[in-house]
Every structure is written in C-alpha cells, then in structure tokens.
C-alpha cells in the first residue's frame, strides 16, 4: 500500500489561514489502513483545526467527507455537491488523491494534509516500512525477494558496499543492510552462486526517469 503520514497540525493550519470554511476529504483505501487519512483521522483533524482556530478567535467551519478511493474519478464525483461553498479542500489522501481532487474541482484551492511516504507495508501495529521502489522493472527474482533498489541506501545492484557491518547499513544502525539480507536469504536457498553474476546497469527509463508513466490495458476498455 501507499504509506502516508499526517503533516503537523500547525503546518496544515498555516495552509488554511485565510479560509473560513473547509472540506476535509478522507480516503478509505491505503491511507486508512496506515492510520493517516481514514475516517477517524479526518474527524480528529477537523476538530483539532476548529479548536485551534477558536482559540485564535477566528472560528473555522469544517465539513468532513469520506470517499472509497481518492484515486478514482468516479468516487471523487460523489463530492460534487459538497464543495460549492467551501474556501479550501483539505485532502487526507495520498499525493494521487490531492491531484484527483484538484483536477475535478479546478476552481478550488486544494491542499495536502499528508506527506506521502512510500510503497510499503506494516511490520507491527503502528509501524510501516518501505518495500518497493516502484522502479517499473522488477528484479526481485534475482535478489532473493529483497529489493536493493529501495532497501539499499545506494540502490546497489552487485552486493553490499564497504559500510555494511553486523547486518546494518552505514547510514544508521537501525537500518538493516539490504544486501546482508539478500546474502543470508540466497545462502539459505543454496543460491549464492547467483550473487557472483554481475547484474547489468538498470534501465531507469522504465522508472520515473523516462518521464511520467502510464499503464494501458486496451482489453479492458469499455467502449
């Protein structure tokens, strides 16, 4: 899933300084699962902003709405009747959701309440970790199911750099060395010989370096 984290209340409050009425839009997809932009977080943020503004003597009116997914135009359309009299729309979706709202409500000011962090998963309740670099050219079959593109701080393709020690990355002792993990897994699978092959340079044109990407499936077009 896409993992996101809420911006500090003060930062969000500063972004809506000039607004008197705002619409907060939560999302029931990824950001709800990672407890950043679901129903509860949306309500809590709305009341926090109201309280802050009340204390400042400049009351704020809030409206809250949930959508199934902010990354689908059909769900965004369900908000059509809610945006008319608000000054600002606050999205608690990921960066995709913010943009879908901005596209649909072209004449409204839309701001992000979250920082979209990464594609990852939960490792325990309340903790999420990055797992996929979204590089567009998966090589996990060559690296024991552990992604060096995003889990190695240098995206190395051919083994650990000189900074790997005791299974940890040189940047921080809390960060596991991806190549150490790859080595251990390949060893347990009896496939260490695979790591002796020099992996070729990556074709980054399949990543963001090739420009914004698009996936097309003509076979499922409805026409």
């Amino acid at each position: 899933m896409i993992v996101a984290e809420q911006k500090p209340i003060k930062t969000i409050a500063d972004l809506i300084e000039d607004s008197n009425k705002v619409l907060l839009v939560g999302c029931s997809a990824c950001v709800a699962v990672c407890l950043a932009g679901g129903e509860k977080e949306t309500e809590v943020l709305a009341s926090a902003l109201r309280i802050k503004r009340k204390q400042e003597g400049k009351p704020l009116e809030t409206v809250t709405k949930m959508v199934t997914r902010q990354c689908d135009p059909e769900y965004i359309a369900t908000l059509d009747d809610s945006v008319e009299d608000v000054d600002t729309i606050i999205s608690l979706g990921c960066g995709v959701g913010v943009q879908y709202l901005a596209e649909r409500f072209y004449n409204k000011w839309v701001i992000p309440a979250l920082d979209t962090k990464f594609a990852g998963g939960s490792i325990e309740h309340g903790q999420w970790e990055e797992r996929c670099g979204l590089c567009g050219d998966c090589i996990l079959h060559r690296t024991g199911g552990i992604c060096p593109i995003i889990r190695c701080s240098k995206s190395l393709l051919n083994g650990p750099c000189g900074g790997s020690q005791d299974g940890k990355c040189e940047i921080n002792k809390d960060v596991p060395c991806a190549w150490h993990l790859i080595y251990e897994r390949m060893k347990s699978l009896g496939k260490l010989d695979k790591l002796l092959e020099i992996q070729p340079p990556k074709d980054w044109s399949r990543s963001r370096d090739g420009g914004p990407r698009k996936v097309t499936r003509e076979d499922v077009f409805i026409d």
Partner: peptide, 21 residues
C-alpha cells in the same frame, strides 16, 4: 576498493572477485 572488514565477511571475497571480473 575492497573492504575485508565489512559484512557479510564470507561475501567480501566474492565481491572482490566480481570487481576483478
């Protein structure tokens, strides 16, 4: 360069060999 003191130790000679290759 090569770091014989990095881990995993057993992979360090492999990595050197790759660089020579």
């Amino acid at each position: 360069v090569a770091n014989p003191f990095g881990d995993p130790f057993e992979f360090r000679v492999d990595r050197l060999e790759k660089k020579v290759e």
